[in-house]
Design a protein around this nucleic acid. Sequence first.
DNA 1: TTATTTATGATAGGTTTACTATCATTATTA
DNA 2: TAATAATGATAGTAAACCTATCATAAATAA
Lengths: 224, 224
Amino acid sequence: MGIEIKIALNEGLYLKDPQDSVLGRNIIKHSILLLSDLGFEAFNFKKLSLEIGSTESSVYRYFENKHLVLIYLVSWYWEWVAYLIRINTLNINDPKRKLEIIINCFVSASFENPSIDYLDKSKLHSVIIAEGIKVYRTKDVDEEYGKGYFRNYKQLITTVAGVISEINPTFQYPYALASNLFEMSNNHIYFAKHLPRLTDISVYGNTVDEVEIMLNYFTDKLLS
Amino acid sequence: MGIEIKIALNEGLYLKDPQDSVLGRNIIKHSILLLSDLGFEAFNFKKLSLEIGSTESSVYRYFENKHLVLIYLVSWYWEWVAYLIRINTLNINDPKRKLEIIINCFVSASFENPSIDYLDKSKLHSVIIAEGIKVYRTKDVDEEYGKGYFRNYKQLITTVAGVISEINPTFQYPYALASNLFEMSNNHIYFAKHLPRLTDISVYGNTVDEVEIMLNYFTDKLLS
DNA sequence: TTATTTATGATAGGTTTACTATCATTATTA
DNA sequence: TAATAATGATAGTAAACCTATCATAAATAA
């Protein structure tokens, strides 16, 4: 059972909605697991179908290629974070408090309820951290932007930029700060683990908490 | 002729030093051009060797694979930026002024002299902006970190972090700010062009100048 | 119920990418 | 002039990427 959450994503991302069938949900589930294990480059539909106990051709009935699977997952994540922000700031009026909550969602969206059976959100977060940037760093970015594949990200950043402007209406870079908070959150969680000399976040401590404190410090300073 | 600059890079990156032969320099030159045209995913040694008028097997004598070519180019860029920072801050004592120069090098390393014949630095900068992040967002990051492939980046960030600490010795995040300035510089030049809703940098104005002003504003605020 | 549509599996095959190996030829250097 | 090194030419393998076709099972409609 679990709680029914169906997130509406751009229909151009898939050939057949994977949320509507057992095989489709298996594709999503095992894509996350495999991407997390192998990374995007070594991941492919052959390995995925073997993992599921299905076939390559069946997977191709849902997604044109692995790049679109990644965009699908990342879009799902963006929507999920936006949803978390919405429900967690419902009764909050103070925009400063709202931004704190947003930062908390950025660094630890994976630990939040409610849960969805076929989607390991903690693993998904690792995938976003390690591979997320690859969805828009390609030669097809303009074409895919035109198709609206990154609209969820745009909307998430617009929401956050709105809160930033509420805190300080004269601040000139609300969008840049919003996207930077998101990117920095992922970057420094990754750096702490793999490239520790690029950050001050400790390798041994509680990475996520430290990143959260840092991002709050940065926004405080910038918006005061 | 041109000025002789030989940049020393990690020897594990190549099988034979491309700076030492005509073919090698051609590989570097046309890798930059092709990567800039096709992007990393569509780039391969077959297309590269055709472009040069050589053969696949000859290219493989210099580099194990295209991923190592990318690391080579990005390392070269890191070293180049570090070099520019060094010569441009030689006689500067004020750390605030130093950081301004660093930011200027980050956003516009490509426009600086001196020039090297076989290396289009403006194109290289585009490649770094679009593809640079792919060097360390892979499953092999830990292994390659161990081999010292990212040492140039580490050193660049260490230098910048030092200047940041000079400006404000109590600032707790010199490394994170340093790497963030570098990443943000590339991100927002890219966003302005391809994902304009993620930034406040105008699509039509002088992107590079605007990014420079923004980064200076951010550092000013954070370090005051 | 039976007929029809839909979803999946099984299998095959074609193209491209990624790489290795071998041998001939051309430059360099000794 | 001989020896060595660098490149080119060619071949070939394995995997990745993708399409097509047919059989079967499951769901739905008549």
